[in-house]
Computed example of a mutant assay.
Amino acid sequence: MKNYKLLFILFFLISGCSKEPELTPAMLGGGVIFDPSIYDPESFLVSYAIPNPTPEQAAQLSDHC
Rank of each mutant, 00 (worst) to 15 (best):
M1C: 06
M1Q: 02
M1A: 06
K2I: 11
K2Q: 05
K2V: 04
K2G: 15
K2R: 04
N3W: 04
N3L: 08
Y4L: 09
Y4K: 03
Y4P: 01
Y4S: 05
K5V: 00
K5N: 00
K5H: 00
K5F: 08
L6Y: 08
L7W: 07
L7N: 08
F8K: 07
F8L: 13
I9K: 13
I9P: 05
L10A: 14
L10H: 10
L10T: 09
F11H: 02
F12G: 04
F12W: 11
F12Q: 08
L13V: 05
L13A: 10
I14L: 14
S15Q: 03
S15K: 01
G16M: 08
C17L: 14
C17F: 12
S18E: 14
K19C: 00
K19A: 08
K19G: 00
K19D: 01
E20G: 00
E20A: 10
E20F: 02
P21D: 06
P21V: 07
P21S: 03
P21F: 06
E22K: 08
L23S: 03
T24M: 02
T24Y: 10
T24E: 04
P25G: 04
A26W: 01
M27D: 12
M27A: 06
L28T: 05
G30H: 06
G30C: 02
G31A: 03
G31L: 05
V32K: 12
V32D: 08
I33S: 07
F34I: 14
D35Y: 15
D35N: 15
D35P: 07
P36R: 14
P36W: 14
S37F: 10
S37N: 06
S37H: 04
S37G: 08
I38D: 09
I38V: 07
Y39R: 08
Y39N: 14
D40W: 13
D40K: 13
D40I: 07
D40R: 14
P41A: 06
P41G: 01
E42M: 11
S43E: 10
S43L: 15
S43N: 12
S43H: 09
F44I: 05
F44D: 13
F44R: 06
L45T: 02
L45V: 02
L45D: 02
V46F: 07
V46H: 10
S47E: 06
S47Q: 04
S47T: 11
S47R: 06
Y48V: 11
Y48K: 14
A49N: 12
A49D: 05
I50R: 09
I50F: 01
P51W: 10
N52H: 11
P53V: 10
P53A: 13
P53C: 12
P53Y: 10
T54Q: 09
T54S: 15
P55E: 12
P55G: 08
P55M: 11
E56S: 11
E56H: 03
E56I: 03
Q57K: 01
Q57M: 04
A58C: 00
A58V: 09
Q60F: 03
Q60T: 07
L61P: 13
L61K: 13
S62K: 14
S62T: 15
S62C: 07
D63S: 15
D63V: 09
H64M: 14
H64A: 05
H64G: 04
H64D: 07
C65F: 15
